[in-house]
């Protein structure tokens, strides 16, 4: 049942709260995440381990194992469908035809006992209903778009005969087979070398721009995100602490966490100087956060920080941060 919303918004998550019940309590993984992805936009989610950036994407695609989690609040709307309500069949057709995914490990996504060609044809036939010959042509076309020169020969090969970069390019090509409106890429290049990483990202971005596919790009690498994304969300301990245009957020971060993160990069300090590290560790997610989650590691913490801040405009257009400092400024 399409819900009335602007045509341009592909994915919208509103105030999502999600936890994983465990032995003695629960891990409060997502604590009030709201985000949106517009058509043709490349949106990044950056955060360190435990920030729930992957879990957020998995939840949006309904890929978390059933029964392993509790959703306590929130809405997810994707292409006009209420993700939390639609049936499994509808979800599958959405995932196959309008939304595609790429994960970190290119090895595990391909069946080692079948040739690349067989796997590609099967996926293409399944999702587009094309005949074998048309599927073959499309597969060749997709591989050429990914700058794979001897595409004919690659189709005959088995996954283990190819390098990691090649496999990831094939998977990206395949992800575009059904001309998706949204591509979710979870650390797609983390297992690859830098030279290969650059190539894979170049190809992915060129293809997405050509087909005006939106990308939700999840990464821990600030520099990578700064080159790849139009707009980013910075996550910390299961909530979004800052959002805005990539350039703005990374050159003039408004939230103390983003500021500290940028300062902690080795390239931001001169040689021989000490790096600015963030003291302490991420708060335990087994305890439900009632205060700003960054409070204990923050240089600017004050009395207001015992309450959870909400995202507010930082003063600069479209850049928002969840910090009480900004409230005071207003």
């Amino acid at each position: 049942m399409p819900i009335d919303m602007s045509d341009k918004t592909i994915l919208k998550i509103e105030d999502l709260h999600l936890n994983f019940p465990i032995y003695q309590g629960a891990v409060h993984a997502i604590n009030g995440v709201s985000l949106y992805v517009d058509e043709g936009e490349i949106v990044g989610i950056v955060g360190e381990s435990g920030s729930a950036k992957s879990v957020t994407a998995m939840a949006a695609l309904r890929l978390l194992p059933k029964g392993s989690f509790r959703l306590t609040n929130g809405n997810i709307t994707m292409l006009g469908h209420d993700i939390l309500k639609i049936s499994e069949a509808e979800m599958n057709s959405l995932r196959g035809n309008q939304v595609a995914m790429i994960f970190q490990e290119p090895q595990t996504a391909l069946n080692p006992t079948k040739t690349i060609g067989k796997q590609m044809f099967k996926v293409i036939q399944l999702h587009t209903g094309k005949k074998r010959k048309e599927a073959r042509n499309l597969a060749l076309c997709l591989l050429q778009d990914m700058r794979i020169n001897d595409a004919e020969e690659i189709l005959q090969r088995y996954p283990f005969e190819l390098s990691g970069g090649m496999r990831q390019r094939i998977l990206i090509g395949l992800a575009f087979a059904c001309s998706p409106r949204l591509l979710v890429a979870d650390e797609p290049t983390t297992a690859l070398d830098v030279t290969v990483q650059r190539q894979v990202l170049q190809l992915m971005r060129a293809k997405a721009r050509k087909t005006s596919t939106a990308i939700l790009f999840i990464s821990h690498d600030l520099a990578l995100v700064s080159q790849f994304c139009d707009r980013i969300y910075v996550m910390y301990a299961g909530s979004i602490v800052e959002e805005g245009p990539t350039k703005l957020v990374l050159s003039a971060p408004a939230h103390p966490y983003t500021q500290a993160l940028v300062r902690a990069l080795p390239e931001s300090s001169t040689k021989g100087q000490r790096l600015e590290s963030i003291p302490g560790t991420v708060p335990k997610l087994t305890i439900k956060q009632e205060a700003c989650s960054f409070r204990e590691r923050c240089d600017h913490a004050h009395d207001l920080c015992v309450k959870i801040p909400s995202l507010v405009m930082s003063g600069v257009k479209t850049q928002k941060a969840a910090c009480w400092l900004l409230e005071k400024v207003r």
Partner: peptide
């Protein structure tokens, strides 16, 4: 290091302190 793996290991960190490599209380819970 996969993000999900790390999140899982973070999940397994339990509030109780363990002093043996067999967590008897966890075993009992299971």
């Amino acid at each position: 290091m996969s993000e999900i793996l790390q999140e899982k290991s973070a999940k397994q960190e339990k509030p109780i302190k363990k002093r043996s490599f067999i967590d008897w209380r966890y075993l009992w819970y299971q």
